[in-house]
Design a protein around this nucleic acid. Sequence first.
DNA 1: GTCAATCTCTAGTAAATTGATAGAGAATCC
DNA 2: GGATTCTCTATCAATTTACTAGAGATTGAC
Lengths: 144, 144
Amino acid sequence: MDVSVKGEYALRAVFELACRDSDEPIKIAKIAERQRIPQKFLELILSQLRQGGFLGSRRGTDGGYFLARPADSITVGDILRHIDGPTTPARRLEQGDVANDSPFPELWQKVERALSSVIDRTSFADLVMRWKENRARKVVNWDI
Amino acid sequence: MDVSVKGEYALRAVFELACRDSDEPIKIAKIAERQRIPQKFLELILSQLRQGGFLGSRRGTDGGYFLARPADSITVGDILRHIDGPTTPARRLEQGDVANDSPFPELWQKVERALSSVIDRTSFADLVMRWKENRARKVVNWDI
DNA sequence: GTCAATCTCTAGTAAATTGATAGAGAATCC
DNA sequence: GGATTCTCTATCAATTTACTAGAGATTGAC
C-alpha cells in the first residue's frame, strides 16, 4: 500500500523531462542534481523507462534523455506500474469458486478501481499544468 | 502500492471472527486452519490486533479470540493501517515551500483519498453482508 | 580518427523487510 | 495439579530495496 522510492524517483524524473517543452535531451547528471536523486541509481531507472518506451535517449556530448511520447499520453500509473509492478497482485483479484470464496477479491477490485481513477487519469501534462498554476498563485501571494 | 501477506492474513482473520455473530472465542488453531494461515505467524498477528484494541482474547480451554468491538465499527482500513502502517508516508503528503515545491504531494493526497474512500468505508459488517448475499446467489444458481 | 562526454549494461552489496519458526511463560478451567 | 490455550521474546532464511562500481558502446567535435 505504498510506493517505492524508486517509483517516486521515476515520477520525478519524468516530470522533470515533461517540464521542458523542448525536445532537446537533458543529461542524467542534471536530472539527478535538480531532483536530488543518486545519479547511478537514476541511470538504472531512466534506462528502464527507456526500455518501457516512455523515454528516448542520445549519447555523447549534448546527449541525454527526453520524452518519447507527448506528456499528455504518459500517466502516473504507466510509470508506477512499469517500475514497481502491478498495484495489486493478480491472484488477489481472482474470484474463488463456490467452495472457497471470500469477500476480498471484490474488495481488491474496488481498491484497484479507486487507485486507477487517480493514477491512470493523471498525465504528466496534467501535473505540469497544475504545478505551473500553483506556482503562479504562490508568486502572486508573495507579491502582496 | 501493495498489501503485505501479513495484512491480508489479518483481514481474513478478522473476517473469520466477524462471521460468527456469537461472542464465544474462536481458537487460533481453528482460524489458522479455516483460513490457511501458518499458525505461529497468525499468533503474532492476532496478538497485535488485540493490542490495537480490535480483538479480545481468553486463555485456557474454551479460550480464543473474539471481536472487541461490533463488526460495523471496524473497517478494512483500520486493520490494514494497524498492521502495515500508513498507506502513504507522511513526508510524501507534505506540501513543500515555494523554493522546493512539486506537484506530487497533491497527487499523493488524491491517491490517499481515493484509497480511503474504499478501505475506510468498508466495515467487516459490510464484508460479511456482501459475502452472504453472494453466497446465496451462487447456491441458487447451483440449484437451477 | 581520436578524444571527451555521455549513455548502457552487468555485477555486486549492505541494510531492511518479509514471512515465517521455536520455545519458555502465564492464564484459565476442570 | 494438569491440560489447554494464549503471550512474549528471540531468531532466522530469503527476498527486496536502495544504491555503488566499473567496463563498454555511441555520439559529436576537432
